[in-house]
Design a protein around this nucleic acid. Structure first.
Lengths: 108, 108
DNA sequence: TCGTTCGTTCGACAGTCATCGAACGTTCGC
DNA sequence: GCGAACGTTCGATGACTGTCGAACGAACGA
């Protein structure tokens, strides 16, 4: 009945609050980089289950939280699923070219 | 008398061995990012002592080791001092624009 | 030769991290 | 209303991290 009150302790940074160190750290893990790559390829919202990852759902959930708290992506509920999308505009505004450069590098 | 046999356990990656995750992780620490920034500004070799860092020399040494092992910089002995330089060519070859993009982002 | 300078290494410590299984809460379809 | 599907949260665990002071080693200068 109540709206979901999960993630109440989660601190999602605004565009201005984005920290380079946090973003780089978020992107430095292979699983998370894979998530971001998949998301960039899709160029749209993707549900957790759609990610071909070699770790438990608990671990996946953890990585999404790290990415959210670093400001790399945004997550939204839709029924029982959760859809994710890159915060491209914010990232590009704050750190121009960073995301694209990292993505390009991650595919070489 | 013998040549220095320090750093014998240090694994410095070749250009081909550079790993994006390692580089991003190396750059995600504020102290290390500061080091890299200083080095990029100098555009030349810089000795450890030249870095205005708010940590102990032991910690500084540790950070340089991390940066070396990630392949971000190269260190060379000259007498009692140790000079450091960015591995720009290698980084640019393997991850085009990455270093410059991160440096630019770190100054905004 | 002796003391200083510069940097590395060691041992320790507190904190964070990636990972997992298990339990839980929501939502949806039957 | 029941059970399945989907994710989150919890607690635990082992690994890694950033930091420090202290001891060490090599090279330089007086």
């Amino acid at each position: 009945m109540m709206t979901r009150n999960l993630a109440i302790d989660e601190l999602v940074p605004t565009r201005e609050e984005l920290q380079l160190g946090d973003v780089l750290h978020a992107l430095s893990d292979p699983v998370r980089l894979q998530i971001v790559r998949t998301l960039a390829d899709a160029d749209a919202e993707v549900a957790c289950g759609q990610f071909p990852l070699a770790v438990t759902k608990a671990t996946v959930s953890h990585h999404f939280k790290v990415l959210r708290e670093a400001g790399v992506l945004f997550s939204r509920y839709e029924g029982t699923r959760r859809f994710h999308s890159l915060r491209r505009a914010d990232l590009d505004a704050r750190f121009p070219d960073l995301l694209d450069t990292v993505l390009r590098a991650s595919r070489s």
